[in-house]
Amino acid sequence: MSDSDAELKRLRWRCRRGTRELDQLFGWWLDERHAAASAELRRGFAGLLEQQDPEIWDWLLGRGTPTDAGQAAVIDEIRTRHRV
């Protein structure tokens, strides 16, 4: 198993949040955007997975924005694609 395969498996595990909606939104980003994403967006996504679910929901619903530019860009992509 390569380092990138191991990293994807680790990220996929961390995408499991306990709510179907967040699992699906994060899973979509990992499946559809991660491979082509810049290093900044990848770091932002990994950092987003460290945040608490209520804060993530606030960001997804437009009730705030992450201070990290990479995290904010990932939130914007998810909101644009899924009309959260």
Rank of each mutant, 00 (worst) to 15 (best):
12 R>T: 09
3 D>F: 12
48 L>T: 10
36 A>S: 07
31 D>K: 15
39 A>F: 05
49 L>N: 07
20 R>K: 13
42 R>A: 10
60 L>V: 06
78 I>E: 06
47 G>R: 11
50 E>W: 03
28 W>T: 08
16 R>C: 09
65 T>V: 01
65 T>N: 07
67 T>P: 01
24 Q>V: 10
81 R>D: 05
10 R>K: 12
2 S>A: 08
24 Q>I: 11
1 M>D: 02
2 S>M: 01
31 D>N: 15
13 W>V: 09
4 S>I: 06
29 W>I: 12
27 G>C: 10
67 T>K: 12
41 L>Q: 15
42 R>D: 10
59 W>S: 00
7 E>D: 11
67 T>V: 09
81 R>S: 05
41 L>Y: 13
12 R>L: 09
80 T>Y: 10
71 Q>I: 05
80 T>A: 15
21 E>D: 14
47 G>I: 01
31 D>P: 02
74 V>I: 12
51 Q>D: 14
30 L>E: 05
24 Q>T: 09
47 G>P: 01
64 G>V: 02
11 L>C: 02
77 E>P: 01
77 E>T: 05
14 R>W: 06
39 A>D: 15
58 D>A: 14
72 A>N: 08
27 G>T: 13
56 I>C: 04
18 G>A: 14
2 S>T: 06
74 V>T: 02
70 G>I: 04
44 G>E: 07
27 G>M: 08
62 G>H: 02
80 T>I: 07
83 R>Y: 09
66 P>F: 08
23 D>E: 07
67 T>F: 05
68 D>N: 13
31 D>V: 07
28 W>A: 10
58 D>V: 04
77 E>Y: 04
9 K>L: 06
9 K>S: 11
68 D>M: 00
27 G>S: 14
78 I>Q: 11
72 A>W: 03
35 A>Y: 00
50 E>R: 15
39 A>Y: 04
59 W>C: 08
44 G>P: 06
80 T>V: 01
54 P>K: 03
45 F>S: 05
35 A>P: 03
43 R>G: 14
11 L>V: 08
65 T>G: 00
33 R>P: 04
3 D>V: 12
78 I>C: 03
48 L>M: 13
37 A>I: 08
24 Q>S: 08
67 T>Y: 07
57 W>Y: 15
80 T>F: 12
5 D>M: 07
35 A>K: 13
72 A>S: 14
48 L>C: 12
18 G>R: 10
44 G>D: 08
54 P>H: 10
51 Q>R: 15
62 G>F: 07
19 T>W: 00
58 D>P: 01
15 C>A: 11
24 Q>C: 08
44 G>Q: 10
82 H>M: 08
15 C>Y: 08
9 K>E: 11
68 D>I: 00
5 D>S: 13
2 S>F: 08
46 A>E: 15
56 I>D: 05
25 L>W: 13
60 L>Q: 01
16 R>G: 11
84 V>C: 00
24 Q>N: 14
68 D>C: 01
66 P>E: 06
81 R>Y: 06
32 E>G: 02
22 L>K: 09
5 D>C: 04
62 G>D: 01
34 H>I: 11
56 I>Q: 02
52 Q>P: 09
30 L>W: 03
67 T>G: 11
9 K>D: 11
